[in-house]
């Protein structure tokens, strides 16, 4: 089905050339160099070559595009449940630099659709398109662009289990919302501790503070969960018990690493994943 549709779309060949809204112009070049901090004095007499795609961007209110092979293939994959997208490769070749006043148009063709592949993000298909920019009939630049359309690993964050928060633990969950991994630290004796609690088990002080952890650690142990189904998660997935460099251990899902490549001792760093109203810490390989 997906392969059939891919062949059909590929067989349509290059899309009709779609003209840029504006001719190459110094105002947009200057906006670009200003934003990117590019002080190259060759601009704006010449356009930065990496701007080639900018000229034909479809803008704030894009019209429906019936001839765009990437849009067509994305719709097919959306329909099949591969609703998430991430770009993986972009290879641009510039035959020459553009000058203000030149008017480019672009044409794209579906090059390849490969899948289904099991990736770190979930099962997905790699979709590759090739685009060519023209001035008149002269090709001035080309681009290979590859995306991964995938079924998100976190199927429904709405139904996923969310933490229960107490007065003793709310600092932790406030931290994750800010992208901080907070580890409880006794303000009296300085001992760090996870999971947190109201009283320091070493000195019995009732003065818990926290430190923002580096988020760096190593896998101390891990499991690969296959069964039974877990709300909000696609199987299988990896949960790792990580020993942080601060000296405490913490559980979290290990994302982006195929299960058979996980091992005790794997260096990881923290990432953050929103689930409902909360943000959970997750581990990523580093």
């Amino acid at each position: 089905m997906i392969t059939d549709e891919a062949e059909r779309i590929a067989a349509l060949g290059p899309s009709p050339r779609r003209p840029a809204r504006d001719a190459v112009n110094p105002a947009m070049i200057n906006n670009w160099t200003e934003a990117l901090g590019d002080g190259n004095s060759a601009y704006p007499e010449l356009a930065p070559p990496a701007m080639v795609q900018v000229w034909t961007m479809r803008g704030l209110h894009p019209a429906a595009e019936e001839h765009d092979p990437l849009a067509a293939m994305s719709a097919v994959l959306d329909e099949a449940g591969y609703t998430s997208v991430v770009a993986t490769n972009c290879e641009q070749t510039y035959h020459r630099y553009l000058r203000p006043g030149e008017h480019v148009s672009v044409s794209s063709v579906l090059d390849a659709v490969v899948g289904p592949k099991r990736t770190a993000l979930g099962e997905g298909w790699f979709v590759t398109t090739r685009s060519t920019w023209f001035v008149g009939d002269e090709p001035v630049a080309e681009m290979l662009f590859r995306i991964l359309k995938f079924k998100p690993g976190n199927k429904s964050t709405a139904s996923a289990l969310q933490p229960t928060v107490s007065r003793d633990t709310e600092f932790f969950w406030q931290g994750t919302k800010l992208g901080e991994l907070r580890v409880q630290r006794c303000s009296a004796c300085g001992v760090v501790r996870h999971p947190p609690g109201p009283m320091c088990p070493r000195c019995n002080a009732l003065d818990p503070g926290y430190v923002v952890a580096t988020g760096l650690g190593e896998v101390f142990s891990y499991v690969v969960h296959h069964h039974p189904p877990v709300p909000g998660r696609e199987l299988p997935y990896v949960v790792a018990l990580v020993e942080l460099s601060e000296g405490v251990r913490m559980l979290g899902e290990l994302v982006g690493v195929p299960p058979d490549e996980v091992r005790v001792g794997l260096p990881v760093r923290v990432g953050f994943r929103p689930v409902g109203e909360f943000v959970l810490p997750v581990w990523e390989a580093r």
Binding site: D38, G39, P49, Q92
Partner: peptide, 27 residues
Amino acid sequence: TTTGLVQRFVTDWAGPGALVRGVSIRL
């Protein structure tokens, strides 16, 4: 922007007389 920054990184070093022929990136 990532593509543009990669190009800028190289032309900052190579100077305004350089001609960039291609940028291939993996994200």
